[in-house]
Design a protein around this nucleic acid. Structure first.
Lengths: 221, 221
DNA sequence: ACATCAATTACGGTTTTCCGTACAATTTCC
DNA sequence: GGAAATTGTACGGAAAACCGTAATTGATGT
C-alpha cells in the first residue's frame, strides 16, 4: 500500500473529509492543502528531502481569491507535478461529470484515476486509491461507454478558439482577422466554415447555436 | 440558538463535514441525508411527531443515480419543504457562484442564507447558521454589488422555450410553427425576434450564439 | 360603439451566414 | 523532381437572419 499522500482541494469541508478517508485506509502520512501552489511547494520539498509523496489527490477547479496563484487549476498543478516527479501517481477528485472532460484527463494528463464527487465519493475514492496503489487505473463506472460514437469529435485548440469567439458574440466574418492576430491558422473564412461544417456533420448538428450549447454542456468551452 | 438541523447534500465527503461543523456550534441535533426525497420525508415525520426541524441546509444540484427521485434538485426540495412547513429556515450550500443564480434563490425561494462551497466554507457556514438563528439573512460578501443592472434580465417561460429550441438546432423561421403546437404565445416570428433582440440589448450581447452560451453558463437552459 | 393604446404580426430590404465550386498552396510519396 | 493527395483560400449564388416599418389585432376606458 501507499505510504504518503497529498490532497489538493480548495473546499474546506471536502478537504478534511478526503484526508480522513485516506487515513482510514491506514496510509500513515496524508497532508492536505487548499492551494495549487502550496501543493507544488510541498511536492518539491518532500522530493528534495528524499521522502517524496507517492500519490496526489487533486481537484480540478480552484476558486480564485486574494492569494494570487501561479497554478490556476488542477490541470496546471498536475502538469507541473509530473514535470517535477514523473512517477507520481495522480487521482483527480472533481465534480466534473462531462465525459469528454474526464477522458481528456486520462488522455492529456495521464492521470491514474478519476473520482467524481457524489453520493458515494468516499467509497469510490477508497477503491480508486487501492487500485492505483496496485498500479492499476481507476475509471468511474461506464465512462468509456458514455462517450458514444456519434459524439466523437476531437476538439482541438483551433476549434476551441473559434467556438469561444463565436460564444463571445463575434461575427463569423470578423473571426479571420482575429485569428490572424492570435497567430492561429488556418485563418481563411472558408477554412473556418469548412471546419465548423465538418464538426456539425460529425455530430449531426444543424446550427451553430446547437454546437455552442453542446460545447457548454461538455465543458469544452 | 437552534436545536435541530437537517442537512441535505449528496456529496458524501461534504455531507459529514457539514454536519460536523453544525455540531461544533453546539446544536444538539443534526441529521444528514443524501437524497432530496429522504429530506422531505424526514421533515414531514419530525413535523408530525411534534419536534420539527428548525433549519434545512441544502445543496442545489443533486446527481441522479439509480434511485428515482420525485424531487430532482434542491430547488424542488426547498419549495416542497416550505409548502409543508412555511416557517422553516433554509440555508443553501452550493458551489454555484453566479450572482444571478444566487439572487434567484433569495428572490424565488426566499431562502435565509447562502454559502458558497470554497476555501473558507466551513467558517462561512458557521456565520450563516448563527445569523439565521438570530433571524437574520446571510448573503455572501459582495453579492448584491455584483449584480450589475446591465446584466439583469428575467428569463420567463417563453424565453426559455425559444432559447431551448434554438439550442436544439431549430431554425428561427421554423420556431413559430413549433410554438403554435406547444400553445405558447406569442407565436409570430417578429415577436420572437423582437424578444430576442430585447434580451440581447439588455445584456449587451451581439449574437444568438453568445446568448446561448450565457444561458448555458447560468443554467437557464 | 368608438377611440386609444399596447401588443402582436406581416412585410421587405439589408446584412450575414451557408454552402458549393474552383483555384492555390503545401505536403507526401514514389 | 514531379505527380498526387491533402489542406487552405477565394468567390458567388442561395438561404437565413437581422432590423426597421407598417398593418393588424386586442384589450381598456369612456
Amino acid at each position: 500500500m501507499l505510504e504518503k499522500v497529498l490532497v489538493a482541494e480548495d473546499h474546506q469541508t471536502s478537504s478534511k473529509a478526503v484526508a480522513k478517508t485516506i487515513e482510514e485506509l491506514s496510509i500513515p502520512v496524508c497532508h492536505y492543502v487548499y492551494y495549487c501552489d502550496d501543493a507544488l511547494t510541498r511536492l518539491r520539498n518532500e522530493l528534495l528531502s528524499g521522502h517524496p509523496y507517492e500519490l496526489l489527490v487533486s481537484d480540478i477547479s480552484f476558486v480564485e481569491d486574494h492569494r494570487t496563484q501561479a497554478l490556476k487549476s488542477g490541470v496546471d498543478l498536475i502538469l507541473a507535478a509530473r514535470a517535477l516527479q514523473p512517477e507520481l501517481k495522480v487521482i483527480v477528485f472533481s465534480a466534473e461529470g462531462h465525459p469528454a472532460k474526464i477522458q481528456s484527463y486520462f488522455k492529456e494528463l495521464k492521470v491514474n484515476g478519476y473520482v467524481q464527487k457524489g453520493r458515494m465519493d468516499a467509497v469510490e475514492l477508497e477503491k480508486a486509491v487501492m487500485a492505483v496503489a496496485k498500479g492499476q487505473t481507476y475509471m468511474p463506472a461506464g465512462i468509456r461507454e458514455k462517450i458514444s460514437p456519434t459524439h466523437s469529435h476531437e476538439f482541438n485548440n483551433y476549434d476551441i478558439t473559434v467556438l469561444s469567439l463565436l460564444a463571445k458574440g463575434e461575427k463569423l466574418q470578423d473571426i479571420p482577422a482575429i485569428l490572424v492576430e492570435l497567430g492561429i491558422s488556418p485563418t481563411g473564412k472558408s477554412s473556418m466554415e469548412k471546419r465548423l461544417n465538418h464538426i456539425k456533420t460529425v455530430l449531426n448538428f444543424k446550427k451553430n447555436e446547437q454546437l455552442i450549447a453542446f460545447c457548454k454542456d461538455m465543458g469544452i468551452i
